[in-house]
Deep mutational scan, measured.
Amino acid sequence: EPLWIRPDAPSRCTWQLGRPASESPHHHTAPAKSPKILPDILKKIGDTPMVRINKIGKKFGLKCELLAKCEFFNAGGSVKDRISLRMIEDAERDGTLKPGDTIIEPTSGNTGIGLALAAAVRGYRCIIVMPEKMSSEKVDVLRALGAEIVRTPTNARFDSPESHVGVAWRLKNEIPNSHILDQYRNASNPLAHYDTTADEILQQCDGKLDMLVASVGTGGTITGIARKLKEKCPGCRIIGVDPEGSILAEPEELNQTEQTTYEVEGIGYDFIPTVLDRTVVDKWFKSNDEEAFTFARMLIAQEGLLCGGSAGSTVAVAVKAAQELQEGQRCVVILPDSVRNYMTKFLSDRWMLQKGFLKEEDLTEKKPWWWHLRVQELGLSAPLTVLPTITCGHTIEILREKGFDQAPVVDEAGVILGMVTLGNMLSSLLAGKVQPSDQVGKVIYKQFKQIRLTDTLGRLSHILEMDHFALVVHEQIQYHSTGKSSQRQMVFGVVTAIDLLNFVAAQERDQK
């Protein structure tokens, strides 16, 4: 057995438009009618409502009807409940999964919650491996369901041993009777949507819809739904939504950006999952974080739909894509998950301010006199920076000697690579993860907040409520011999709460 199987392995699926269902090699399930009293909570997966979006479509000038398939009504709160249950049931049916076995899954959280929910009911041990950027709410729900959680670096490539995929496979090879159901490759993922989600949409719309818009992560949702719609409703256009920084969209030119990270969760990847059939997507749109969270908040405030950030991405694209539809036509959007997962993220004004998705003037509360002053007023001194090749031991000596707790790590040209902190280095040394002679590049981390000289002290204040420091950066445009230009970030300084307090105190003292 291989040590790991690539999540982007070539698909062996034989589905073709027009091929009889009787030739399918898979076990198919028909939607079942729910009894009045459910035998367990797993029976509350599927049969989610279709809700008309009344205000947002009109606000953006849509002539067509805009409908939302509300997947956050599933038992675990997301569309991923469907595939989690289906993968477990299919693994039980073919004898792969037996009582007492362990389920391991690399996930952005929602599939993990679905699997942990099913594992709690069915009696399996469950280990979820997820990147650090995923919300604390997801972690809390997983723990409450009895799952064990392993976190991995957000910026690790999918084929790196440190990625959530790599760590999951390492655990599988170490733990007896453990299984990775593997949402990236498992046919049960798109089949769950082909058999149930798509049929529900067709039934709820009486077979009449002209466009379907869905955000894409593993691709199982859009693949399964689109294949069924292509068979039953061939005139329906399928629109895929991919965040900026991901590479799922086609044509490839759409993916060209210097951005590699994004805040919206559960969609987009740096590889093409095996289950994603991009041939059934008629057109791709890219979405960005700001519009995703703005539209998610709009869905909550104006439509009462308590959905997550990827739902915002989907609707932001839908109001663009559906401009081509006329009166009497219908566009369906998939709202994948609930706001429950993001209470401390985009639902929080403070978080939105820190990330730059909300401006101070958007909030009406009274601010102190210094709130709208610029960061450049602080008069920061030149920063202490270190090269990635310097040793951890030497870096600790320098920081202690100069009285700093942290320093930016830059390359020879001064471009920011990340940050090192005294606390992080000492804990890594004590844990045996690094040696004093190791290069400081081994303990770089990139989960820090950046701020510009033109940003306000109010925004800085919000950042420092949650973080010990902020890195002050400025952009530099560099022209190359080819005539092309590129933008790079340079370090201007490091600012802490002490710097802000000293500035405010000094100004008030001078005024007296």
Rank of each mutant, 00 (worst) to 15 (best):
I238D: 05
G240P: 00
V241H: 00
D242F: 02
P243V: 07
P243Y: 06
P243R: 01
S246E: 03
I247T: 11
L248N: 00
L248M: 07
L248Y: 02
L248H: 00
A249E: 05
A249L: 05
E250D: 11
E250N: 08
E250Q: 11
E253G: 10
L254H: 08
Q256V: 14
E258I: 15
Q259G: 10
Q259K: 12
T260D: 13
T260S: 14
T261C: 09
E263H: 09
E263V: 06
V264G: 00
G266K: 01
I267H: 01
I267L: 03
I267G: 02
G268T: 01
G268F: 00
G268H: 02
G268S: 00
Y269C: 01
D270K: 05
F271R: 00
L276N: 01
D277R: 03
R278Y: 05
R278K: 10
T279Y: 14
V281N: 04
V281K: 02
W284A: 00
W284R: 00
F285S: 10
F285E: 08
K286R: 03
S287N: 07
N288V: 07
E290R: 04
E291A: 14
A292W: 02
A292S: 05
F293L: 03
T294V: 14
T294S: 14
F295V: 15
R297K: 07
L299Q: 03
I300S: 04
I300E: 00
A301K: 03
E303H: 07
G304W: 00
G304V: 01
G304M: 00
L305C: 02
L306I: 02
L306A: 00
L306M: 07
C307K: 06
G308L: 00
G308M: 00
G308A: 04
G309S: 05
G309R: 00
S310V: 00
S310G: 02
S310Y: 00
S313D: 02
S313W: 02
A316R: 14
A316P: 13
A316S: 06
V319F: 14
V319D: 01
K320M: 12
K320F: 11
A321D: 11
A322M: 05
A322Q: 02
Q323N: 07
E324S: 10
E324K: 15
L325A: 03
Q326L: 03
E327P: 10
E327R: 15
R330A: 09
C331I: 07
V332T: 03
V333H: 00
V333Q: 02
V333G: 03
I334W: 00
I334L: 08
I334K: 02
L335M: 11
L335P: 00
P336N: 01
D337Y: 00
R340V: 06
N341T: 02
N341K: 05
N341F: 00
Y342H: 05
M343W: 00
T344D: 04
T344R: 07
K345N: 02
K345L: 02
K345S: 05
K345V: 01
S348Q: 07
D349L: 09
R350S: 13
R350D: 08
K355I: 03
L358D: 08
K359D: 03
K359I: 14
E360T: 08
E360Y: 15
E361P: 06
D362Y: 14
D362W: 11
E365C: 14
E365Y: 10
K366N: 14
K366H: 11
K367E: 14
K367H: 05
W369T: 03
W369N: 07
W369S: 04
W369E: 07
W370T: 01
W370Y: 05
W371S: 09
H372D: 14
L373A: 10
L373M: 08
Q376K: 10
Q376C: 13
E377M: 11
L378W: 05
G379P: 12
G379I: 12
G379D: 14
L380N: 05
A382F: 14
A382N: 11
L384Y: 07
L384M: 12
T385V: 03
L387N: 12
P388E: 08
P388N: 08
P388F: 06
P388I: 03
T389R: 14
I390R: 03
I390D: 10
T391H: 15
C392P: 11
C392N: 06
T395D: 09
E397R: 13
E397T: 12
E397C: 07
L399M: 12
E401R: 03
E401L: 03
E401P: 13
K402A: 05
G403F: 08
G403Q: 10
G403W: 12
F404G: 03
F404E: 03
D405E: 09
Q406A: 09
Q406Y: 09
Q406C: 10
A407I: 14
A407F: 13
A407R: 03
A407K: 04
V409A: 12
D411P: 15
E412K: 14
V415L: 15
V415E: 15
I416L: 14
I416V: 15
L417F: 15
G418R: 05
G418S: 13
M419K: 13
M419G: 11
T421C: 07
T421N: 04
L422A: 11
L422K: 09
G423C: 04
G423H: 07
N424I: 10
N424K: 12
M425P: 09
M425W: 09
L426C: 15
S427T: 11
S427N: 09
S428G: 13
S428M: 06
L429C: 11
L430P: 13
L430Q: 05
G432L: 11
G432F: 11
G432Q: 03
G432N: 09
K433R: 13
K433P: 03
K433V: 12
V434P: 13
Q435M: 15
S437M: 13
Q439K: 11
Q439E: 14
G441N: 14
G441T: 04
K442A: 14
V443L: 07
I444D: 12
Q447L: 14
Q447E: 15
Q447D: 15
K449V: 07
K449L: 13
Q450F: 15
Q450M: 13
Q450H: 09
I451L: 13
R452H: 13
R452E: 11
R452K: 04
T454N: 12
D455V: 13
D455C: 14
T456I: 08
G458T: 08
G458N: 10
R459K: 14
L460R: 02
S461L: 12
H462F: 13
H462V: 15
E465H: 06
M466L: 14
M466C: 13
D467F: 14
D467Y: 03
D467L: 07
D467R: 07
D467N: 13
H468A: 06
H468G: 04
H468E: 07
H468R: 13
H468C: 04
F469K: 09
F469P: 11
A470M: 05
L471K: 06
L471M: 15
V472F: 10
V473E: 13
V473W: 07
V473L: 08
V473A: 12
H474P: 11
E475F: 09
Q476M: 11
Q476C: 09
Q476N: 13
Q478W: 13
Y479L: 15
Y479S: 15
Y479C: 14
H480E: 12
H480D: 12
S485F: 15
S486Q: 13
Q487T: 14
Q489K: 13
Q489W: 12
Q489G: 05
M490V: 13
V491K: 09
F492V: 15
F492G: 15
G493W: 12
V494Q: 04
V494L: 15
V494I: 12
V494D: 02
V495D: 09
V495W: 11
T496P: 08
A497F: 04
A497Q: 09
A497H: 02
A497W: 11
L500T: 13
L501D: 01
L501Q: 02
N502M: 11
F503N: 06
F503M: 13
F503R: 13
F503A: 09
V504R: 10
A505V: 14
A506E: 10
A506Y: 08
A506K: 10
E508T: 03
E508H: 11
R509C: 15
D510V: 15
D510Y: 12
K512D: 10
